[in-house]
């Protein structure tokens, strides 16, 4: 019974365009379909619908792959003329002055530094807060508390970033200004606090799931050995859930790096080379959002913005790769 549907699956695969066959997603999908014995039995009876369903799922899985590829191609296509005319070395400059009567400068270093600073600050704020909240909700909170806390956190995730940005501009920036005795609250720190607020719900809910999915036997064994509840949480449950927590943090950071509107509203957007949380920074996302709308099609400025986009894409790409590595490492141990 297991063999025949498999043969049909191979057959159906032969009808695919080669481009679709080559995608790595497909193997996973086929594997998944094979792993369901009932599915195999059902599709054997209805061979045509099996093929149709398989095609449909393969198309779904391949589409995202294709779109990513096309986005890459498009970005490079628009950005490539920059290489020959001003030259790529211009991107390594420390000044971003895209509109000037003197000399236009397209150094993306202050933008990269800005994104880096805001992301790091947001991580420092969001990780302890998020993981702490997750541990509390998963391990310490009473059921009634959990029922109340979880929807509240999900609500935080549902706030549109523009609304959060406006809140940041009107409430948070003056607060940051007053607390740190600054001349203005439009700083990297204000942006980071907003981003931490946005990343926290992601971190909390995924980390909480991870902690809750640690087998009961781990806790029971620890408690039976004479450990206190706190010791169990700290030494057994949390380390056991570490891979899930790391994934939660990485996903939260992914949201931070790509966020645009909130940082555009509160960081002041001055393209400075700075590592101080109390200075204004201009992030890569804010630069693209603010300038792409009015830039002349095909101009050097336009191409430079595409290079900013490519840099951003690579940054998130690397972040994902590292996350995968870390995940795999913890899963093995």
């Amino acid at each position: 019974m297991g063999l025949e549907p498999d043969a049909k699956v191979e057959e159906a695969g032969g009808e695919h365009p080669p481009a679709l066959r080559a995608t790595p997603f497909e193997g996973g999908l086929v594997g998944a379909l094979r792993a369901i014995p009932f599915a195999g039995g059902y599709f054997r009876i209805a061979g045509a619908s099996e093929r149709g369903a398989r095609l449909f799922f393969a198309a779904c899985a391949s589409t995202s792959m294709l779109i990513v590829l096309l986005i890459f191609l498009f970005l490079f296509k628009e950005a490539v003329p920059f290489v020959s005319k001003p030259g790529l070395s211009d991107l390594a400059g420390t000044r971003w002055v895209p509109v000037s009567f003197q000399h236009e400068l397209f150094g993306i270093l202050p933008l990269v530094l800005g994104s880096l600073l805001v992301t790091l600050l947001a991580s420092v704020l969001a990780i302890p807060f998020g993981v702490g909240a997750a541990i509390y909700i998963a391990e310490l909170a009473r059921p009634a508390e959990r029922e109340f806390l979880k929807p509240c956190i999900e609500m935080l995730a549902a706030i549109p970033s523009v609304v959060l940005g406006f809140f940041g501009l009107v409430v948070l920036a003056p607060l940051v200004k007053a607390v740190f005795h600054l001349s203005t609250g439009l700083t990297a720190l204000s942006g980071a606090i907003l981003l931490a607020l946005m990343a926290a719900p992601t971190i909390i809910s995924i980390a909480e799931d991870a902690i809750r999915s640690v087998p009961r036997s781990y806790r029971e064994a620890s408690l039976a050995m004479g450990a206190t509840h706190m010791q169990t949480v700290w030494k057994v449950t949390t380390p056991a859930a570490l891979s899930g927590i790391v994934a939660a943090v990485m996903l939260g950071m992914g949201r931070v790096v790509g966020e645009t509107m909130a940082v555009l509203m509160v960081t002041g957007n001055a393209a400075m080379m700075t590592l101080s949380p109390f200075d204004s920074v201009r992030t890569m996302t804010a630069t693209i959002a603010a300038e792409m709308g009015e830039v002349t099609f095909g101009s050097t400025h336009y191409q430079a913005l595409f290079w900013v986009g490519i840099t951003l894409l690579f940054a998130t790409f690397i972040l994902n790769m590292v996350a995968q590595r870390v995940l795999r490492k913890y899963q093995r141990s």
Binding site: V97, F101, Q102, A173, T184, L264, G268, S280, A290
Partner: peptide, 28 residues
């Protein structure tokens, strides 16, 4: 006079955000 803005000049996304920030910051 066609000179560049200083790098430390904060660029605000809209006129309303400039008004909002100036109304909050004594030194702006």
């Amino acid at each position: 006079k066609k000179q560049d803005f200083a790098a430390s000049v904060r660029l605000m996304p809209a006129t309303a955000t400039i008004i909002q920030s100036v109304s909050e910051d004594e030194t702006a």
